[in-house]
C-alpha cells in the first residue's frame, strides 16, 4: 500500500494543536538555518542533535496577576511555571515520534556541564525569538509577547521537517507608557526598579529600542544564589572574608544555602522579577492573565 504523502503544513498544525491543548499559549517553528548561524559553536541545534531538521519552540503562561503583587522575595521562590512548558515539550517529542515516526528530542533546559554557571546547552530564547513567539525586551533581553506578555519557553528538536515561522514583525517592547516615562526621566520602569541597577538603555525617536545594556553579572549576583556556594567555599578555604575560616560556613546566614543544597531547591535560579513586575507588557498584555484568558475562551 502506498504511503500517504507527508503533509508538513498539516503536521505543523497537528503539533500546534497538541501543544495548545496541553497548555502552551504560543507555538512556533524557528528557522533552523538561522539558529545555526546565530548560535555560537557548541550551542547550535546540530551540536546537540546532529540530524535536526526543525526547531519547535513553545511558550507557557508566566505569572498570575496575584503573583505580581507578591513581595519580591516571595516572587523569587514562588518560582516559575517553566516546568509546565518542559512537560509539554517532553510529551511533544514522544508524540512526534509516535505520530510521525521522526526521532525527536526534548531540548534539555539545563546548563552546559562543561560551561559552568550561566552557560546553557541551548538558547531556548533564541529558538523562541526566531520562531516568532517572543521579542527581546529592554529588560535584559527577556522575551515578551504582545498578547501573552511574559512566557516560559521550551524547545523540541525533531528530524521532521516543518515549515518555519518568521520572527515577530513588531517588538512590543517598549510599551507606549514606558516610552512616555523614558521621555520624562530617561528610564523605563524596568530600568528604574531593578534592584541591582543592571539595566539601562535608550529609546529612539520612533519609540523603538535603540540600545539595551544588561549587566548580567550584577543580575546574577542578585538572582542566582547557586554561585554563592563555590564562592563561600573559596572564602572559607582562603579565609579572605571572615576570620573564623571554615567555621563561617556554618553561621546562620549561610546555613540556608546548605539546606538548599540538600533539598535540591530550584530556588537557586530564583529571579527577582522586579523588572517583570513593573513591565506593562508582562503584567497587562491582553491575555497575560490566565483568568482573563479563560473568560475570553468561554465567551468565545
Amino acid at each position: 500500500m502506498e504511503q500517504p504523502a507527508f503533509d508538513a503544513v498539516a503536521a505543523k498544525q497537528a503539533i500546534f494543536e497538541y501543544c495548545k491543548k496541553r497548555g502552551a499559549l504560543a507555538v512556533g517553528i524557528a528557522n533552523l538555518a538561522d539558529c545555526e548561524r546565530i548560535a555560537p559553536p557548541g550551542h547550535r541545534p546540530s551540536d546537540l542533535f546532529p540530524r535536526v531538521k526543525s526547531v519547535i519552540s513553545l511558550g507557557v503562561g508566566g505569572q498570575t496577576q496575584g503573583a505580581w503583587a507578591l513581595p519580591s522575595k516571595a516572587m523569587a521562590y514562588s518560582g516559575s511555571t517553566e516546568v509546565r512548558g518542559y512537560k509539554v515539550a517532553y510529551g511533544l517529542a514522544f508524540h512526534i515520534e509516535q505520530k510521525f515516526g521522526a526521532p525527536s528530542v526534548y531540548v534539555p533546559p539545563d546548563l552546559d556541564p562543561e560551561g559552568g554557571p550561566r552557560v546553557p546547552l541551548q538558547s531556548l530564547k533564541l529558538h523562541a525569538e526566531l520562531a516568532g513567539i517572543g521579542a527581546r525586551s529592554l529588560a535584559g533581553d527577556i522575551l515578551l509577547h504582545a498578547e501573552f506578555g511574559f512566557l516560559y519557553y521550551a524547545s523540541v528538536f525533531t528530524e521532521l521537517e516543518l515549515p518555519p515561522d518568521a520572527p515577530m514583525a513588531e517588538n512590543p517592547c517598549p510599551a507606549p507608557s514606558c516610552v512616555s516615562m523614558y521621555r520624562q526621566i530617561g528610564r523605563t520602569p524596568c530600568m528604574k526598579f531593578c534592584p541591582a541597577q543592571c539595566l539601562s538603555g535608550e529609546i529612539d525617536d520612533q519609540g523603538r529600542q535603540k540600545m539595551m545594556r544588561y549587566d548580567m553579572a550584577a543580575c546574577a549576583e542578585l538572582t542566582q544564589e547557586y554561585e554563592a556556594v563555590p564562592k563561600m567555599l573559596a572564602e572559607a578555604v582562603a579565609d579572605e572574608v571572615r576570620t573564623q575560616g571554615a567555621q563561617g560556613l556554618l553561621d546562620p546566614d549561610r546555613k540556608m544555602l546548605w539546606y538548599k543544597v540538600s533539598a535540591g531547591s530550584g530556588a537557586w535560579f530564583a529571579q527577582c522579577f522586579e523588572c517583570m513586575r513593573v513591565c506593562p507588557i508582562a503584567t497587562r498584555a491582553p491575555q497575560a492573565d490566565p483568568i482573563l484568558r479563560r473568560e475570553q475562551k468561554k465567551t468565545g
Binding site: L70, P71, S72, K73, A76, L222, E225, P230, K231, V278
Partner: peptide, 22 residues
C-alpha cells in the same frame, strides 16, 4: 565571575515589603 560575585545579594530583596517595588 566567582571572584567578583558578592554573596547575599538576595538579601536586598528582603528590604522590600509586600507588593512594593524596588
Amino acid at each position: 565571575e566567582s571572584r567578583r560575585f558578592r554573596v547575599g545579594q538576595q538579601a536586598y530583596l528582603l528590604d522590600l515589603g509586600g507588593g512594593k517595588r524596588y
